[in-house]
Amino acid sequence: MANLTLNINNKEYRLDADPQMPLLWAIRDLAGLKGTKYGCGVAQCGACVVHMDSEAVRSCVTRVSRAAGKKIVTIEGLSENNNHPVQQAWQQIDVPQCGYCHSGQIMSAAVLLRDNPNPSDADIDDAMAGNICRCGTYLRIRKAIHLAAEMQQKTANG
């Protein structure tokens, strides 16, 4: 039955999916990974961000056919034990309120810190303005990204 294979979090998923189906729904309903969220369906809110070949794509507008053969990482696969520097910083600062948008926020922030280990406030705006948080945790997101950058540098410096 399966018509395509997705590599999600280093695991192969053989799926039977309409090729037009957005990656979001394949991840959630077919692969059963519910950490990636549906928020708007039109690439406006960022709740659905996953990494596809290391870029922070919006899975709600990415057709599953585009994702076949690429490496997908979801929030569940970002780290071994919830310990990516961004996750640790989020925990230390208690960033989430309702928490719904934070899978996407964290996935976006992880790409920022990979490309720019020491981001300024302006860099954070440039990277994170695509992710909406209705609870308004933005100031904590900013603070946590700075903290994650520090933590990442400490780890790098051994």
Binding site: G35, Q87, G99, H102, S103
Partner: peptide, 13 residues
């Protein structure tokens, strides 16, 4: 917080 940073908190959806 822990379950909201690794995608395991179960929301309605």
């Amino acid at each position: 917080t822990w379950i909201k940073t690794n995608g395991t908190a179960v929301f309605g959806l």
